[in-house]
Amino acid sequence: MALPIYASPAERVWYYAFRFICAMIFLFLIAPILIVIPLSFNAEPYFTFTEKMLSFDPTGYSMRWYDLLLTHPNLPTDVPRDSSWWAMVWKDAAWVNAAKNSVIVGFFATILATFLGTLAALGLSRPEMPYRRAIMAILISPMIVPVIIITLGLFFFYSSIEVNKWGVPYLGVIMAHATLGIPFVIITVTATLSGFDHSLTRASASLGASPSTTFFKVIMPLITPGMVSGALFAFVTSFDEVVVVLFVGANDEQTIPRQMWNGIREAISPAILSVATILVIVSISLLATVELLRRRSERLRGVTPH
């Protein structure tokens, strides 16, 4: 949108004012996320920039809050950091265990959501699918219904079937997280399939391919980008989910968000900011992956960005 030559002076002023307003809104969007990164290196336990930080004095910065993530009240602090120390950290440090739990729950929830969601999206995008709209509305609704209501339902349901006594760790949380992730998988995979040329499958069949060959050699490569970005959405949903874990998770099922939640409610320390920084870096890399996949998918399907 270049400024046209016939623009009046008022329009010229508005043109630059508009850009300034937009820049401010972008700042509003992005600044809170970026501000936690430098603050997490604060040497003092404050949430604001100290004099030393502002004058870029190296002593104003430290890694102490990152170091705190690796420690535990029961771990000795004065031992040399050799392999046995790292083994102890891996086994006992609260944040490390929370990270392990988050990854386990996220992994299984993602597998479940992606498998079931992709299968359903394949059915839903067929033109002959009966009650398509109604079923789609039901399958998307876990995204719309407030998570507190879903959690309340699961709380009643799990306590009636006593899922915590089944001996399968994380089962209840994994099923709940898969449910929350499914709408994302459905939306992304059906979007990939929306431009899908059904004559490709017929062509493949007419050339003698069995249905399974057609699926793996023709359909799969085309829907993989949508599937992977749906899976990433599902993983992020699970990785970020706190309400379900708080209400239906067993006491030892501490995940990163739950640990953060407890940390924020009790005494917020800059250690939370160092976790936040790590999570921001994780989300930047996930966003980059999804963006690359989207471009690849558009290239494969021959859809040019408009």
């Binding site: 002959e128 039901i138 399958l139 339902g153 099923m175 709940a176």
Partner: peptide
């Protein structure tokens, strides 16, 4: 039926982990 069979597993899953809990609420 073939299209519906593809959707069925997810529909069952959603009924168990979502619709039934909501019904309990």
């Amino acid at each position: 039926r073939r299209a519906f069979m593809l959707v069925l597993p997810l529909l069952l899953f959603i009924v168990i982990t979502f619709l039934w809990p909501i019904a309990q609420v």
